[in-house]
């Protein structure tokens, strides 16, 4: 069995043509660059379609995280008010 597999492998191996592009990464048909940093798809490009499809939901959420410390306190006070009203109504 292993022998048969090896024979098949040898058949393919002998007909392998060593051209320049074979085995290189394929990025949209462009000639791949030599810098490894350009070959690696990563960072914000990964899941771009997913986040782009959800942008109506995600963008307001990101806008909400303003990074201003007054807003942090604001959310704290708002949650406090919500929790107190919630508990008062239910107990």
């Amino acid at each position: 069995m292993a022998l048969v597999a090896y024979l098949f492998y040898q058949m393919g191996e002998s007909s392998y043509k060593k051209t320049r592009l074979k085995g290189d990464p394929f990025i949209s048909g462009n000639r791949p660059s030599k810098d490894p940093r350009d070959i690696h798809v990563g960072g914000d490009n990964l899941y771009w379609g997913f986040t782009h499809a959800l942008r109506k939901y995600l963008d307001p959420l990101v806008e909400g995280h303003t990074g201003i410390v007054n807003d942090y306190v604001y959310w704290f006070v708002v949650t406090l008010a919500f929790v107190l009203v919630f508990l008062y109504l239910l107990i």
């Binding site: 942090y72 959310w75 929790v83 107190l84």
Partner: peptide
């Protein structure tokens, strides 16, 4: 009770007091 709950959930970084 409400005060204690909100304070400790803030420390525990629960939304919407997670921004820190």
């Amino acid at each position: 009770i409400g005060l204690v709950m909100v304070i400790l959930s803030m420390k525990a970084s629960s939304v919407p007091m997670h921004m820190w």
